Computed example of a mutant assay.
Amino acid sequence: MPDRNLTTLVGSRICHDLISPLGAIGNGLELLQMSGRADSPEVALIADSLENATARIRFFRVAYGDAKPDQQISGHEIASALRSGLGNTRLVVEFDAVDMERQTARLLFLALQCLETAMPYGGTITIDLSGQSLSLVGRADRFAREEALWENLTATAGSYELRPAQVQFALLRSLCDDEKRTLTVAQDDTTISIAL
């Protein structure tokens, strides 16, 4: 089994296994609310943390989970995962989510995470999906991008040593190679564009 397939299976397994205990925490919070103790700052902190963790796992399930050829994902599910997964960032995502192949959605979410890495100060990401072509344009007044990391995304032989928070770059490139997609990146002072 190729390493990349194993990687997506591991991603799916982790997301699946984490959702269950988070659901149990949610049930516990409901019991606290029914008992009349829901107004405390401690319960509010737990509820907020639970909501954030659940949102990120929904995002990660699409980005790192298994995606079979011709498997579909609804536009509603994509929009919901984007809203929840990027809700605590300073990013505004402009995208009319539509039903699409899960493999395409996975590439979209990984590319979004790449842009998120370079846009910690906020900005706008515009997504365009035309048939099998996908483009993302990140616009910001200020970026925090590591040039070597971005060059490694499209270079034929890169030597950049990834950190765990940058794994999306390696996975995006690997999946594009597997799916015979051309991956291009263009940058200037105010934009970063990723086209698949």
Rank of each mutant, 00 (worst) to 15 (best):
residue 1 M to F: 12
residue 5 N to A: 14
residue 7 T to S: 07
residue 8 T to F: 10
residue 9 L to S: 02
residue 9 L to E: 09
residue 15 C to M: 05
residue 18 L to M: 08
residue 18 L to N: 05
residue 19 I to E: 02
residue 20 S to W: 01
residue 22 L to P: 04
residue 23 G to C: 09
residue 23 G to L: 11
residue 27 N to W: 07
residue 28 G to F: 11
residue 28 G to P: 00
residue 29 L to Y: 04
residue 32 L to E: 11
residue 34 M to G: 00
residue 38 A to M: 09
residue 40 S to A: 05
residue 41 P to V: 06
residue 42 E to A: 12
residue 42 E to N: 12
residue 42 E to R: 06
residue 45 L to W: 12
residue 47 A to C: 05
residue 47 A to E: 15
residue 50 L to T: 13
residue 50 L to A: 10
residue 52 N to F: 11
residue 53 A to N: 07
residue 54 T to E: 05
residue 54 T to K: 12
residue 56 R to N: 04
residue 56 R to L: 08
residue 58 R to Q: 14
residue 58 R to I: 07
residue 59 F to W: 09
residue 66 D to L: 03
residue 69 P to D: 13
residue 74 S to M: 07
residue 75 G to H: 08
residue 77 E to P: 00
residue 79 A to Q: 12
residue 80 S to N: 14
residue 80 S to V: 00
residue 82 L to M: 07
residue 82 L to V: 12
residue 86 L to Q: 01
residue 88 N to E: 14
residue 89 T to H: 02
residue 90 R to S: 08
residue 92 V to Q: 13
residue 92 V to R: 14
residue 93 V to E: 00
residue 95 F to H: 09
residue 98 V to N: 11
residue 101 E to T: 08
residue 102 R to S: 08
residue 107 L to G: 00
residue 107 L to R: 09
residue 107 L to V: 04
residue 110 L to P: 03
residue 111 A to C: 04
residue 112 L to K: 04
residue 113 Q to E: 13
residue 116 E to A: 13
residue 117 T to M: 03
residue 117 T to Y: 04
residue 119 M to D: 05
residue 119 M to N: 05
residue 120 P to H: 10
residue 123 G to L: 03
residue 124 T to R: 14
residue 128 D to L: 10
residue 129 L to V: 15
residue 131 G to Y: 09
residue 132 Q to P: 12
residue 132 Q to H: 15
residue 133 S to A: 15
residue 134 L to K: 14
residue 138 G to R: 02
residue 144 A to N: 14
residue 145 R to L: 05
residue 151 E to W: 04
residue 152 N to G: 03
residue 153 L to Y: 02
residue 153 L to A: 02
residue 154 T to F: 02
residue 157 A to H: 13
residue 162 L to Q: 05
residue 162 L to A: 08
residue 163 R to Q: 14
residue 166 Q to P: 00
residue 167 V to Y: 01
residue 167 V to M: 09
residue 167 V to P: 03
residue 167 V to F: 06
residue 169 F to C: 06
residue 172 L to F: 10
residue 175 L to K: 06
residue 175 L to Q: 13
residue 178 D to S: 11
residue 180 K to L: 12
residue 181 R to L: 10
residue 181 R to W: 01
residue 181 R to Y: 03
residue 181 R to M: 08
residue 182 T to P: 13
residue 184 T to E: 14
residue 185 V to I: 13
residue 186 A to K: 08
residue 189 D to L: 10
residue 189 D to V: 04
residue 189 D to F: 03
residue 190 T to K: 08
residue 192 I to Q: 03
residue 196 L to S: 01
residue 196 L to V: 15
